[in-house]
Protein backbone atom coordinates (compact mmCIF):
# COMPACT_ATOMS: atom_id res chain seq x y z
CA UNK A 1 0.00 0.00 0.00
CA UNK A 2 1.31 3.42 -0.99
CA UNK A 3 -0.52 6.51 0.24
CA UNK A 4 0.21 10.04 -0.90
CA UNK A 5 -1.35 13.03 0.84
CA UNK A 6 -1.13 16.54 -0.54
CA UNK A 7 2.24 15.52 -1.94
CA UNK A 8 4.06 18.51 -3.40
CA UNK A 9 7.47 19.08 -4.93
CA UNK A 10 8.74 22.43 -6.16
CA UNK A 11 11.97 23.11 -7.96
CA UNK A 12 12.39 26.83 -7.54
CA UNK A 13 9.34 28.40 -9.18
CA UNK A 14 8.35 25.28 -11.05
CA UNK A 15 5.81 23.01 -9.40
CA UNK A 16 6.61 19.45 -10.45
CA UNK A 17 4.04 17.77 -8.24
CA UNK A 18 1.12 19.84 -7.07
CA UNK A 19 -0.52 18.56 -3.92
CA UNK A 20 -1.61 15.14 -5.14
CA UNK A 21 -3.47 12.47 -3.18
CA UNK A 22 -3.63 8.84 -4.22
CA UNK A 23 -3.61 5.32 -2.86
CA UNK A 24 -2.02 2.32 -4.54
CA UNK A 25 -3.71 -0.85 -3.32
CA UNK A 26 -2.30 -4.37 -2.98
CA UNK A 27 -3.37 -7.30 -5.12
CA UNK A 28 -3.70 -5.41 -8.40
CA UNK A 29 -1.36 -3.81 -10.89
CA UNK A 30 -1.72 -0.04 -10.83
CA UNK A 31 -0.54 1.81 -13.91
CA UNK A 32 1.01 5.23 -13.48
CA UNK A 33 0.62 7.31 -16.61
CA UNK A 34 1.40 10.82 -17.68
CA UNK A 35 3.09 12.76 -20.45
CA UNK A 36 6.78 13.63 -20.18
CA UNK A 37 7.37 16.15 -17.45
CA UNK A 38 4.04 15.41 -15.78
CA UNK A 39 5.69 14.62 -12.46
CA UNK A 40 5.71 10.81 -12.60
CA UNK A 41 9.35 10.25 -11.91
CA UNK A 42 9.47 12.95 -9.27
CA UNK A 43 6.55 11.29 -7.51
CA UNK A 44 8.20 7.88 -7.64
CA UNK A 45 11.47 9.37 -6.38
CA UNK A 46 9.62 10.82 -3.43
CA UNK A 47 8.05 7.42 -2.73
CA UNK A 48 11.50 5.96 -2.10
CA UNK A 49 12.90 9.01 -0.35
CA UNK A 50 15.31 10.14 -3.07
CA UNK A 51 13.64 13.53 -3.28
CA UNK A 52 12.24 15.29 -0.26
CA UNK A 53 8.65 16.48 -0.68
CA UNK A 54 8.35 20.25 -0.42
CA UNK A 55 5.18 19.55 1.54
CA UNK A 56 2.73 16.73 2.07
CA UNK A 57 3.73 13.13 2.54
CA UNK A 58 3.90 9.77 0.90
CA UNK A 59 3.77 6.66 3.05
CA UNK A 60 4.61 3.07 2.22
CA UNK A 61 2.80 0.52 4.37
CA UNK A 62 1.87 3.31 6.72
CA UNK A 63 5.26 4.85 7.28
CA UNK A 64 7.82 6.98 5.54
CA UNK A 65 10.10 4.92 3.32
CA UNK A 66 13.17 6.22 5.10
CA UNK A 67 11.80 5.10 8.46
CA UNK A 68 11.93 1.43 7.52
CA UNK A 69 14.89 -0.41 9.06
CA UNK A 70 15.41 -2.48 5.89
CA UNK A 71 13.61 -0.60 3.12
CA UNK A 72 14.52 -3.05 0.35
CA UNK A 73 12.43 -5.64 2.20
CA UNK A 74 9.48 -3.24 2.13
CA UNK A 75 9.68 -1.69 -1.33
CA UNK A 76 11.48 -2.95 -4.38
CA UNK A 77 11.95 -0.14 -6.85
CA UNK A 78 13.28 0.07 -10.36
CA UNK A 79 13.62 3.79 -10.93
CA UNK A 80 16.50 4.21 -13.31
CA UNK A 81 18.11 1.08 -14.61
CA UNK A 82 21.44 2.84 -14.85
CA UNK A 83 21.73 3.56 -11.16
CA UNK A 84 24.85 1.45 -10.93
CA UNK A 85 28.61 1.54 -11.33
CA UNK A 86 29.63 0.30 -14.80
CA UNK A 87 32.78 -1.31 -13.45
CA UNK A 88 31.05 -3.61 -11.00
CA UNK A 89 29.70 -7.05 -11.87
CA UNK A 90 25.98 -7.78 -11.69
CA UNK A 91 26.54 -10.20 -8.84
CA UNK A 92 28.63 -7.73 -6.83
CA UNK A 93 26.01 -5.02 -7.38
CA UNK A 94 23.34 -7.27 -5.89
CA UNK A 95 25.69 -8.49 -3.16
CA UNK A 96 26.24 -5.05 -1.74
CA UNK A 97 22.54 -4.24 -2.00
CA UNK A 98 21.75 -7.44 -0.09
CA UNK A 99 24.39 -6.70 2.53
CA UNK A 100 23.06 -3.17 3.07
CA UNK A 101 19.63 -4.50 4.05
CA UNK A 102 20.55 -7.74 5.78
CA UNK A 103 19.14 -9.83 2.95
CA UNK A 104 20.61 -13.36 2.77
CA UNK A 105 23.24 -13.65 0.04
CA UNK A 106 21.44 -16.66 -1.45
CA UNK A 107 18.76 -14.26 -2.71
CA UNK A 108 21.35 -12.83 -5.12
CA UNK A 109 21.56 -16.10 -7.04
CA UNK A 110 17.80 -16.54 -6.91
CA UNK A 111 16.91 -13.18 -8.42
CA UNK A 112 19.68 -13.42 -11.03
CA UNK A 113 18.12 -16.67 -12.15
CA UNK A 114 14.62 -15.22 -12.00
CA UNK A 115 15.50 -12.39 -14.40
CA UNK A 116 17.64 -14.61 -16.61
CA UNK A 117 21.00 -13.01 -15.90
CA UNK A 118 22.62 -15.96 -14.11
CA UNK A 119 24.81 -16.62 -17.13
CA UNK A 120 26.37 -13.15 -17.13
CA UNK A 121 26.39 -12.47 -13.39
CA UNK A 122 30.16 -12.08 -13.31
CA UNK A 123 30.35 -9.59 -16.16
CA UNK A 124 30.83 -5.89 -15.53
CA UNK A 125 27.51 -4.15 -15.99
CA UNK A 126 29.03 -1.42 -18.16
CA UNK A 127 28.97 -3.96 -20.97
CA UNK A 128 25.32 -4.80 -20.49
CA UNK A 129 22.77 -3.90 -23.12
CA UNK A 130 19.91 -1.62 -22.16
CA UNK A 131 17.66 -4.65 -21.74
CA UNK A 132 20.15 -6.50 -19.55
CA UNK A 133 20.55 -3.40 -17.39
CA UNK A 134 16.79 -3.28 -17.08
CA UNK A 135 16.68 -6.91 -15.99
CA UNK A 136 19.36 -6.23 -13.41
CA UNK A 137 17.32 -3.30 -12.11
CA UNK A 138 14.30 -5.57 -11.79
CA UNK A 139 16.45 -8.18 -10.02
CA UNK A 140 17.48 -5.47 -7.55
CA UNK A 141 13.84 -4.55 -7.00
CA UNK A 142 12.93 -8.17 -6.23
CA UNK A 143 15.97 -8.83 -4.05
CA UNK A 144 14.29 -8.16 -0.71
CA UNK A 145 11.10 -10.08 -1.62
CA UNK A 146 9.17 -6.86 -0.93
CA UNK A 147 5.38 -6.53 -0.53
CA UNK A 148 5.46 -3.32 -2.59
CA UNK A 149 7.06 -3.18 -6.04
CA UNK A 150 7.54 0.05 -8.00
CA UNK A 151 8.69 -0.24 -11.62
CA UNK A 152 9.36 2.96 -13.58
CA UNK A 153 9.40 2.26 -17.32
CA UNK A 154 10.36 -1.39 -16.79
CA UNK A 155 10.09 -2.42 -20.43
CA UNK A 156 12.46 0.25 -21.80
CA UNK A 157 14.97 -1.45 -24.02
CA UNK A 158 13.48 -4.92 -23.65
CA UNK A 159 12.80 -7.19 -26.60
CA UNK A 160 9.28 -8.53 -27.19
CA UNK A 161 9.99 -11.61 -25.11
CA UNK A 162 11.28 -9.38 -22.31
CA UNK A 163 8.22 -7.14 -22.50
CA UNK A 164 5.97 -10.18 -22.16
CA UNK A 165 8.06 -11.37 -19.27
CA UNK A 166 7.70 -8.06 -17.41
CA UNK A 167 3.94 -8.10 -18.02
CA UNK A 168 3.60 -11.58 -16.53
CA UNK A 169 5.95 -10.69 -13.70
CA UNK A 170 3.89 -7.64 -12.74
CA UNK A 171 0.66 -9.62 -12.86
CA UNK A 172 2.16 -12.52 -10.89
CA UNK A 173 3.48 -10.17 -8.22
CA UNK A 174 0.03 -8.62 -7.88
CA UNK A 175 -1.60 -12.05 -7.79
CA UNK A 176 0.64 -12.89 -4.83
CA UNK A 177 -1.03 -10.01 -3.01
CA UNK A 178 1.71 -7.45 -3.49
CA UNK A 179 1.20 -3.80 -4.28
CA UNK A 180 2.48 -3.19 -7.81
CA UNK A 181 2.90 0.27 -9.32
CA UNK A 182 4.13 0.38 -12.92
CA UNK A 183 4.75 3.40 -15.11
CA UNK A 184 5.15 3.18 -18.85
CA UNK A 185 4.81 5.22 -22.00
CA UNK A 186 3.71 2.17 -23.93
CA UNK A 187 -0.07 2.41 -23.81
CA UNK A 188 -0.75 -0.91 -25.48
CA UNK A 189 1.51 -2.57 -22.95
CA UNK A 190 -0.09 -0.76 -20.05
CA UNK A 191 -3.55 -1.76 -21.28
CA UNK A 192 -2.49 -5.41 -21.01
CA UNK A 193 -0.78 -5.08 -17.66
CA UNK A 194 -2.67 -2.70 -15.40
CA UNK A 195 -6.01 -3.14 -13.66
CA UNK A 196 -6.16 0.33 -12.24
CA UNK A 197 -4.82 3.64 -13.51
CA UNK A 198 -3.50 6.79 -11.97
CA UNK A 199 -2.99 9.47 -14.60
CA UNK A 200 -0.99 12.57 -13.82
CA UNK A 201 -0.52 15.73 -15.87
CA UNK A 202 1.22 18.97 -14.97
CA UNK A 203 1.73 17.70 -11.47
CA UNK A 204 -1.95 16.97 -10.78
CA UNK A 205 -4.02 13.81 -10.77
CA UNK A 206 -6.15 13.71 -13.93
CA UNK A 207 -7.72 10.32 -13.31
CA UNK A 208 -7.66 7.60 -10.67
CA UNK A 209 -9.96 4.75 -11.66
CA UNK A 210 -10.11 1.27 -13.15
CA UNK A 211 -8.76 0.69 -16.63
CA UNK A 212 -12.27 -0.10 -17.93
CA UNK A 213 -13.86 3.03 -16.48
CA UNK A 214 -11.01 5.17 -17.76
CA UNK A 215 -11.39 4.03 -21.35
CA UNK A 216 -15.19 4.15 -21.26
CA UNK A 217 -15.18 7.65 -19.91
CA UNK A 218 -12.50 9.25 -22.05
CA UNK A 219 -12.81 7.35 -25.32
CA UNK A 220 -16.13 5.53 -25.45
CA UNK A 221 -16.68 2.68 -27.88
CA UNK A 222 -18.66 3.47 -31.05
CA UNK A 223 -19.88 1.95 -34.29
CA UNK A 224 -18.29 3.27 -37.43
CA UNK A 225 -20.66 3.54 -40.40
CA UNK A 226 -19.35 4.39 -43.85
CA UNK A 227 -21.56 4.89 -46.86
CA UNK A 228 -21.27 6.61 -50.26
CA UNK A 229 -24.55 8.32 -49.33
CA UNK A 230 -23.41 9.62 -45.99
CA UNK A 231 -25.82 12.56 -46.04
CA UNK A 232 -28.83 10.28 -46.20
CA UNK A 233 -27.34 7.99 -43.57
CA UNK A 234 -27.00 10.86 -41.11
CA UNK A 235 -30.61 11.85 -41.83
CA UNK A 236 -31.79 8.34 -40.91
CA UNK A 237 -29.64 8.29 -37.76
CA UNK A 238 -31.01 11.69 -36.76
CA UNK A 239 -34.57 10.50 -37.30
CA UNK A 240 -33.89 7.59 -34.96
CA UNK A 241 -32.65 10.04 -32.33
CA UNK A 242 -29.22 8.39 -32.11
CA UNK A 243 -26.13 10.13 -30.78
CA UNK A 244 -23.52 10.30 -33.52
CA UNK A 245 -20.67 12.47 -34.77
CA UNK A 246 -18.74 12.77 -38.02
CA UNK A 247 -15.63 10.64 -38.25
CA UNK A 248 -12.72 13.13 -38.23
CA UNK A 249 -10.66 10.83 -40.45
CA UNK A 250 -13.19 10.21 -43.19
CA UNK A 251 -15.96 12.51 -44.51
CA UNK A 252 -17.95 9.50 -45.73
CA UNK A 253 -18.15 7.98 -42.24
CA UNK A 254 -19.91 8.69 -38.96
CA UNK A 255 -19.42 7.35 -35.46
CA UNK A 256 -22.55 6.18 -33.67
CA UNK A 257 -22.12 6.25 -29.95
CA UNK A 258 -25.29 4.74 -28.52
CA UNK A 259 -26.47 1.88 -30.70
CA UNK A 260 -25.08 -1.51 -31.63
CA UNK A 261 -24.08 -2.55 -35.14
CA UNK A 262 -27.07 -4.85 -35.57
CA UNK A 263 -29.64 -2.13 -34.90
CA UNK A 264 -27.93 0.37 -37.17
CA UNK A 265 -27.50 -2.21 -39.95
CA UNK A 266 -31.16 -3.19 -39.83
CA UNK A 267 -32.34 0.41 -39.94
CA UNK A 268 -30.09 1.32 -42.87
CA UNK A 269 -31.22 -1.81 -44.67
CA UNK A 270 -34.84 -0.76 -44.19
CA UNK A 271 -33.93 2.67 -45.58
CA UNK A 272 -32.35 0.89 -48.56
CA UNK A 273 -29.05 2.72 -48.14
CA UNK A 274 -25.75 1.12 -49.20
CA UNK A 275 -23.31 0.49 -46.35
CA UNK A 276 -19.62 -0.07 -47.08
CA UNK A 277 -18.52 -0.44 -43.51
CA UNK A 278 -20.31 -1.16 -40.26
CA UNK A 279 -17.82 -1.83 -37.52
CA UNK A 280 -17.92 -1.71 -33.71
CA UNK A 281 -14.76 0.05 -32.49
CA UNK A 282 -13.36 -0.59 -29.02
CA UNK A 283 -11.40 2.42 -27.95
CA UNK A 284 -7.82 1.98 -26.93
CA UNK A 285 -6.16 3.20 -23.79
CA UNK A 286 -4.00 5.34 -26.03
CA UNK A 287 -7.00 7.26 -27.39
CA UNK A 288 -8.41 7.72 -23.92
CA UNK A 289 -5.06 8.92 -22.68
CA UNK A 290 -4.61 11.33 -25.58
CA UNK A 291 -8.07 12.79 -25.08
CA UNK A 292 -7.49 13.31 -21.39
CA UNK A 293 -4.00 14.71 -21.57
CA UNK A 294 -4.34 16.74 -24.76
CA UNK A 295 -4.10 19.99 -22.86
CA UNK A 296 -1.83 18.74 -20.13
CA UNK A 297 1.18 17.98 -22.28
CA UNK A 298 4.18 19.82 -20.95
CA UNK A 299 6.53 19.37 -23.86
CA UNK A 300 4.41 19.04 -26.98
CA UNK A 301 6.22 18.76 -30.27
CA UNK A 302 6.34 21.98 -32.26
CA UNK A 303 3.64 22.45 -34.86
CA UNK A 304 5.00 21.97 -38.37
CA UNK A 305 6.49 25.10 -39.89
CA UNK A 306 4.42 26.83 -42.56
CA UNK A 307 5.59 25.86 -46.01
CA UNK A 308 6.39 28.20 -48.83
CA UNK A 309 9.42 29.88 -47.36
CA UNK A 310 12.89 28.69 -47.99
CA UNK A 311 14.61 28.14 -44.70
CA UNK A 312 17.79 26.67 -46.03
CA UNK A 313 20.03 27.89 -48.76
CA UNK A 314 18.90 31.50 -48.51
CA UNK A 315 21.43 33.65 -50.35
CA UNK A 316 23.20 36.10 -48.12
Amino acid sequence: MITAQALTKRYGDRVAVDGIDFTVRPGIVTGFLGPNGAGKSTTLRMVVGLDRPTSGSVLVNGRRYAAAPAPLREVGALLEARALHPGRSARDHLRWLAASNGIPTMRVGEVLEQVGLDGVAGQRVGRFSLGMGQRLGIAAALLGDPPVVVLDEPVNGLDPEGIRWVRHLARDLAAEGRTVLVSSHLMSEMALTADHLIVIGRGRILADCSMRDFIDEHAPAYVRVRSPRAGEVTAVLADLGLDFEPDPDDPAAVRVLDADAATIGDELHDARLPVHELRPVESSLEEAFMTLTADAVEYAADAPRPRGRTLVGVPA
Binding site: V48, G49, A66, L79, R82, A83, L97
Partner: peptide, 12 residues
Amino acid sequence: TGLARATYTAVP
Protein backbone atom coordinates in the same frame (compact mmCIF):
# COMPACT_ATOMS: atom_id res chain seq x y z
CA THR B 1 27.24 6.95 -12.33
CA GLY B 2 23.84 7.40 -10.72
CA LEU B 3 24.75 4.71 -8.21
CA ALA B 4 23.93 7.16 -5.42
CA ARG B 5 20.26 6.71 -6.23
CA ALA B 6 20.54 2.97 -5.67
CA THR B 7 22.59 3.51 -2.54
CA TYR B 8 20.28 6.05 -0.96
CA THR B 9 17.25 3.98 -1.93
CA ALA B 10 18.75 0.94 -0.21
CA VAL B 11 19.82 2.95 2.82
CA PRO B 12 17.79 6.15 3.14
